[in-house]
């Protein structure tokens, strides 16, 4: 923790290094994102990509860039940073290193709502599913938080975890029951629940982007408060923070971020759990830095995994939820082991 260092100059220097690292990571992200847009069944030059964005002429190449690749990359950026930051906030709020946005029931809620939309309401358009997923995720998180807040102590981390686990199992069994009756929906949902960025339209991205961006902005603005929250209720009270109020605010931010991300990419579970850990291993236990690093790192991981997935496993629509874990898990193990070995 920088603030705990006795020598102010060291703190300033590490903060400077962190800023540089963050800027470098951001540049890498930008490069990967641009590279990703140029890849597909045929390579598109960066010049053509720019031409498609700036001077769209309706040709097949421009349509491919504007209606397929660009929305897919943007959806990956938004979903990745949303999930990672939501995961970091969950871990800060619950003091639980295994916490992820899924703990608030957002994944189960989104999946249930999508299955209801497809199976019971007969909604075939995947564009409409975004709103069902968002609504389901938000409703589930609100229910979990309401359940956890009942009682005098308010929403303690333990009660949040329990309420989330209960609602998740409940919704998952309802979802399974619905899918039993509907083989066609089962096939479509199986792909959705693996987490996929295929077929996202610019409209869907534009619809969800404001919520995720608002959540990211709030997380960055309030990152000091989230840091305080991570120290636990008594420490937070000692420095004058109202933990009940700030837990509520944190939950709202998580709903915006994770709800938006799940509605765009499906329940990509791994990112929200592991990216905050990677950030913590790299920049230290300081949520003021974990949050911006998580935002950039999560976006990088999802876009990179999705790009690799659709280049290496072309024609199979490999879901990003799978490639994220395939790419991310070995990296995470390597990083964790290296840190353990380096520790005295």
């Amino acid at each position: 923790m920088t603030g705990a260092l006795p020598d102010g100059r060291i703190a300033a220097r590490t903060d400077g290094m962190r800023s540089c690292a963050l800027a470098a990571l951001f540049l890498v992200l930008a490069a990967v994102a641009v590279w990703s847009v140029t890849l597909g069944t045929s390579r598109t030059s960066i010049r053509d990509v720019l031409a498609a964005i700036l001077a769209f002429d309706g040709s097949r190449e421009h349509l491919v860039v504007m209606t397929l690749r660009l929305p897919r990359v943007l959806a990956g950026l938004l979903a990745g940073s949303g999930l990672a930051v939501a995961g970091a906030i969950m871990q800060a709020m619950t003091n639980n290193p295994l916490a992820s946005p899924g703990l608030l029931g957002v994944n189960a809620g989104a999946a249930f709502a999508v299955v209801v939309a497809m199976s019971l309401l007969g909604v075939a358009s995947s564009g409409t599913h975004v709103w069902f997923a968002f609504g389901g995720a938000g409703a589930a998180a609100v229910i979990v938080y309401a359940l956890a807040s009942s009682g005098r102590a308010g929403a303690t981390p333990l009660k949040l975890v329990l309420a989330g686990a209960v609602l998740t199992s409940f919704l998952t069994s309802l979802t399974t029951a619905l899918l039993l009756f509907d083989q066609t929906t089962l096939d479509a949902v199986r792909l959705w629940t693996a987490g996929s960025l295929a077929g996202r339209s610019m409209q869907q991205v534009a619809d969800v982007a404001p919520y995720i961006l608002a959540g990211l902005a709030a997380a960055l603005i309030f990152r000091r408060h989230l840091m305080t929250l991570s120290l636990g209720a008594s420490a937070a009270r000692a420095v004058g923070q109202n933990p009940v109020l700030w837990r509520g605010i944190a939950v709202v931010i998580v709903i915006l971020l994770a709800g938006g991300a799940v509605s765009l990419a499906g329940p990509v579970g791994f990112v929200g759990l592991v990216v905050p850990h990677i950030a913590r291993l790299t920049v230290g236990v300081d949520y003021r830095w974990i949050i911006p690093f998580g935002a950039v790192g999560g976006a990088l991981m999802v876009v990179l995994a999705d790009t690799l997935g659709r280049t290496l496993f072309a024609s199979q629509s490999f879901p990003v939820g799978v490639t994220v874990a395939l790419v991310g898990a070995p990296f995470f193990i390597w990083l964790a082991r290296r840190r353990v070995d380096a520790a005295p």
Binding site: L63, G122, A188
Partner: peptide, 24 residues
């Protein structure tokens, strides 16, 4: 093959064939 509800397949067909990449 969108689902077993009436109209579900037609809705998906309309969305698909309206896409300019399909038309190409």
């Amino acid at each position: 093959a969108a689902g077993n509800r009436p109209g579900q397949d037609d809705e998906l067909e309309a969305e698909t064939i309206a896409n300019p990449l399909w038309k190409m």
